[in-house]
Structures are given as structure tokens and as C-alpha cells.
Design a protein around this nucleic acid. Structure first.
Lengths: 223, 223
DNA sequence: GCTCTGTTTTGAGGTAGATCAATATCGGTC
DNA sequence: GACCGATATTGATCTACCTCAAAACAGAGC
């Protein structure tokens, strides 16, 4: 649970303070942007419902999906340094967000050590996560990348109490491809192959993991 | 300067406190590890002299260079969340490091808002940096990657007051390749081609940028 | 239910970068 | 200054993935 909740481990008194932190709530429809690259940074955002993708943009317009975010994830962390968001966040379905004004969060973090600790945890975990994606993009073959993606998704659903073997993807093949450094056709072909090989069952965006162990085995082969 | 110094913008009084933070100094020889994957996390490290590479390790032993760090860089940020370092840091030459015990840094950050702010800046900048590398690895062609790498290096040298057009690479072709998601032969060929095309001058690890504008133009083409 | 648009699947063929291999060069050591 | 292992260069070939193209499918709106 710790990883899913910024105010984890706080006592009742501190919790009251933190409650004053939560600013507004935002509702997004599928396709709505929570923020865009270049927007002034003021707040972090906690996902309460639904899911979003974040994308980094190159100057020439190329776009790379940098993350897929769901319940409990905190997004916007990359904006702290630059005072501007470096990427954009777009809802993949109807989504609800808690706004956490960052200045107040900083003030509160100074007063509440456990909150400070949690904030650092979230920041650092984002860094670790990104490093793992770099490893994936830099040194894994296409089928390994998709296997990692599926297993990672399964794990995140599991931690949130959802089925870890059956879920509905919220992203298109193109978005998955962008995230994994592959083209949509390659992603589609891999889904088909995993299906044929009995590793998964796919029907459009509905995915069922049939043999997670075999998927894990796939990772690390060849390369 | 702000980006190069954790105690940036602190007044004299606060500075005195921060001075008490700096624990020991560590001297590393070329090839020495500052920390290894799995080591308990206790401190952040500031590079005072020399340079290091950080590498992420896959379970199967594959290794990916996640960063190249020089004077003023803070490393170890990915360990905060997990209490274990997720990657390893190895000196690329004789190197001097300041140890910053993290618990004390956290304590001090609660007392000194400006220090807190700077810490958040460093954490967030690392995230932005990683996102840009993800963009590079996920959607750029080989020659674009090397161009980005060289221009980025030039910029970092410039900010530190060194020549931005002439420098000596501290990494092997293989390490550069690992960082950029390419094989060493590809890196070598690209250096040769950039040389032939009059963009740079290369002699082993000594590099001179002859036409930075053309290198910039290269980025964003095709893709 | 039908239409339209966006998404997905599948096929055929091309290419950037990998792999394999041989030679050259560097940097350190005795 | 000669030797040795590590690093770099360069060439020839191979292949994983991309590109282009066409058809099947899904879902939102009427």
C-alpha cells in the first residue's frame, strides 16, 4: 500500500493537515489533456480513477509515450525542476485527478517528516522506473519488451487488487508501440504470436495471461 | 550555476549547517565502483572531480549505461525509494566524491527550505533527463542519437566552464553504445562518418565539434 | 440496423543496424 | 623501446524490425 499512497503511514493529526493540501479535483474525458508540454508547473496530480498516458515531445514533433498511469500514481514530477511541464498527460478514459499544489506540499513536507519521506520515495521510484524502461529500450528485443510490459501491467493491477491475469488495455497498439520503441504493426504481430503460442489470449484490447511463467522466461533470451 | 550545486542560493548561516552535512570524501580510481546494485542505500554522492558511469543491470546480466556523470552531478538518487541501489556507479577515471548521508540531508531539508527546493530540483531534473533519454532510445535513429549525445556533452562542458567544442571522451565506444542503445561498431562507424562529413574531428577519444549547427540539423530528420 | 472513421490484423518486401571477422591502434608495463 | 591486452576501425553479410499496402474489424453517431 505504501507505494500507492502519498500520505501512507501518517498519524491522524498529520493526516488532517494533509487533507488541507488536496486542492481541487479534476475530471477528464478520454482524450483530454491534464497538462501539456510547456504549461507552467504548479501542482502534482494523483490519479483517483481511470488512467492516463504521459508523452515526451521532441522539438520536431515526434512523440514518445513515457508512461502509463493508473490509480494511486502521482504524475507531473518532471515539472518541478524546470517550472514547466516537460511532457504532456492525456486521459485514456474517463479519469479523476486530485490536484496537489506543490508549494503547499513542500511546506507540509517540512512539517511532517513522514510525508517528506513519502514524497522522496515517489520521486525516486519514478527514477528507478525510468531506468528500467531505458534498459528495456536500449537492450531488449521486441518480444522481450512486450513481455516486460504485460508482466509489469499485471503486477500493477495485482497490487491494486484487480485481476493480474485478465485486463483491458487502455492504449492503442500505436501507443503501446511508442512506449516500447516499436511500431504498431510489430506490437500487433507480437500479440498474435503470443496468442498462437498459448502465452496469452488477446481479443482486441482484452488480454488474458495464460502462462506468465513462460512470458518471464522469454525475458533474457537471446539479446 | 544553480543546476550544479545543491546548496545554491543558501545564506551564510544555512551554509554552515549544510557544511556539517558533508560526510566523508571518497577517492576512486578508474574502474572502482562507488556502489553496486543491491548495496544498501544510505547516501547521495556529489561528484567533485572526475567522472563516472551509472549502469542498470537486468536479471540476466545485461547491462545498460544509464548515465554519464561529471563535476556537480548528484548520483544515487534512484536508491532512495528502494533502500537499495538499483544500479551501480563506476569511476571512468580518477574521481573524487562527496558523501551526503541522506537522512541528515532530509533533516536539513526540513529546516532549510532552499535546500529542500534544491533537492527536489535535482530529483526532478533527473526524471526529465531520463525522459529525454527514453525519447532518444525509443524514437531516434543511430546518427541522431550520437548527435544528441555529443551536443549534450558539449553543453554540459560549457556550463562547467570547459570548452564546449573540444573534449576527451571518458567512455569506450562500447559504453557510449550501451548508453545509446547501439553496438560499439555502429558508434565507431558513426564517428568515422561524422568525421568524413566534416561535422567533427575524432582521434580516438579526443573529439572536436566542427559544425555543431549541422549536428543539430541532423536531429529530427527522417525518423 | 447502417455508415463512417479509427484501429487492428496480416502480408510482402526493404533497410538500418547487428553480427561476425580481421586488422589496426592505443595505453600501460617490464 | 618492445610487448601485450584492451580498444577501435573497417568490411561483408545477415536479420529483426520497419515500411508500405490492403483488408477486416470495432465502436460511435445517426
Amino acid at each position: 500500500m505504501r507505494e500507492l499512497c502519498l500520505p501512507f503511514g501518517l498519524n491522524a493529526e498529520d493526516m488532517q493537515q494533509v487533507d488541507t493540501l488536496v486542492g481541487s479535483r479534476v475530471k477528464l474525458k478520454k482524450g483530454d489533456a491534464l497538462y501539456r508540454a510547456g504549461d507552467a508547473f504548479q501542482s502534482l496530480y494523483a490519479v483517483r480513477l481511470g488512467s492516463l498516458k504521459t508523452t515526451v515531445l521532441a522539438e520536431d514533433g515526434r512523440e514518445q509515450v513515457s508512461g502509463y498511469h493508473m490509480l494511486g500514481d502521482i504524475i507531473g514530477l518532471d515539472g518541478i525542476g524546470t517550472e514547466r511541464h516537460g511532457c504532456q498527460a492525456v486521459a485514456l478514459e474517463d479519469t479523476e485527478i486530485c490536484v496537489l499544489p506543490f508549494e503547499r506540499l513542500e511546506d507540509l513536507a517540512r512539517a511532517v517528516p513522514q510525508l517528506q519521506r513519502n514524497l522522496h520515495l515517489f520521486l525516486s521510484r519514478e527514477i528507478s522506473r525510468d531506468h528500467n524502461i531505458m534498459l528495456l529500450l536500449g537492450s531488449m528485443r521486441a518480444e522481450e519488451r512486450l513481455a516486460v510490459f504485460l508482466l509489469n501491467l499485471a503486477d500493477r493491477y495485482r497490487r491494486r487488487g484487480y485481476s493480474s491475469t485478465e485486463f483491458v488495455l487502455r492504449m492503442t497498439r500505436e501507443e503501446i508501440g511508442s512506449h516500447l520503441g516499436l511500431k504498431l504493426e510489430t506490437v500487433s504481430r507480437l500479440f498474435s504470436r503470443f496468442h498462437e503460442d498459448g502465452l496469452i489470449q488477446v481479443q482486441g484490447r482484452a488480454v488474458k495471461l495464460l502462462n506468465a511463467a513462460a512470458l518471464k522466461e522469454l525475458i533474457g533470451q537471446h539479446g
